[in-house]
């Protein structure tokens, strides 16, 4: 089933930079879609347009057949809560425990006054602990999040996103700040929630070797335009040079 549809999406920042030109694509339920492209090609912008962290300049964006670009306020927040997001810098709340960080994923369904007092239901706490178990961090629930290693922080971020009970998970270069072996471990957790929990994943990546291992489909951006859509295995030497430039050399991480 079709989950997300982008029609003629363009994005110009207030300072005049046009980061996206007329982007069209659809995402089917259950896909592991990877977006590749050079730094500055518009990958982060595209993800932030999908959950409306940045408003789009023109074009349409349908999530579960609903037009997202026309939404604001409460409606927009409800839709956003169905779209999880993780970041290159993890973006956990400093000085708070891992459990509090995971529970923050339930803010959209918690009344404001309760969340100000930190009053979450027992069921929510249990759910948070369950998601921590999925990412293998149940024993760290009461540790301060900023005391964890990078890979562990990213797994907490995944658990926080799962707490939203999302249909889609957006991942903006989730392993770019991690070393190779930790990168694979985090990617494996993303693969697990994609395959076992059926969460659709849209992930920005830098390394083609990771793309070949984890992606079910690839979109390549260059200068804010889609230059390639297809299976990861079909990216040959020629395509590689189109996407990354003539001088690029492929490196792999194991």
């Amino acid at each position: 089933m079709q989950l997300l549809q982008c029609n003629n999406l363009s994005k110009t920042y207030p300072n005049g930079t046009q980061a996206l030109h007329d982007v069209n694509f659809t995402v089917e339920e259950g896909e592991f879609l990877v977006i590749i492209g050079l730094s500055g090609s518009g990958k982060s912008t595209l993800l932030r347009c999908i959950n409306q962290l940045h408003p789009v300049s023109s074009g349409e964006l349908y999530f579960e057949q609903q037009q997202l670009t026309a939404m604001a306020g409460k409606d927009l927040r409800r839709q956003r809560s169905r779209i999880g997001m993780i970041f290159q810098q993890f973006n956990l709340i400093p000085r708070k425990t891992v459990l509090t960080n995971v529970l923050a994923g339930a803010l959209a369904v918690t009344p404001v006054w309760k969340s100000l007092l930190g009053l979450y239901s027992e069921a929510q706490k249990q759910q948070a602990l369950d998601y921590l178990k999925i990412v293998g961090l149940e024993h760290k629930a009461y540790v301060r999040a900023d005391n964890l290693s990078g890979g562990q922080q990213q797994r907490v971020a995944i658990a926080r996103a799962l707490m939203q009970n999302p249909k889609i998970l957006l991942a903006d270069e989730p392993v770019a700040s991690l070393d190779p072996s930790t990168s694979h471990s985090v990617m494996k957790y993303l693969q697990k929630i994609n395959q076992e929990l059926g969460v659709t994943v849209i992930c920005n990546l830098h390394f083609l070797s990771l793309v070949r291992t984890y992606a079910s489909r690839v979109i390549a951006l260059k200068g804010g335009r889609i230059v390639y859509q297809g299976a990861p295995g079909d990216i040959d030497e020629q395509w590689f040079k189109t996407i990354y430039g003539e001088d690029a050399v492929e490196v792999s991480i194991n």
Binding site: R80, S81, P94, L107, A108, V112
Partner: peptide, 14 residues
Amino acid sequence: PVEAMTATGAHPIQ
């Protein structure tokens, strides 16, 4: 963290 909280669909006060 502000971006992350906004992305969860939290209210501006949250």
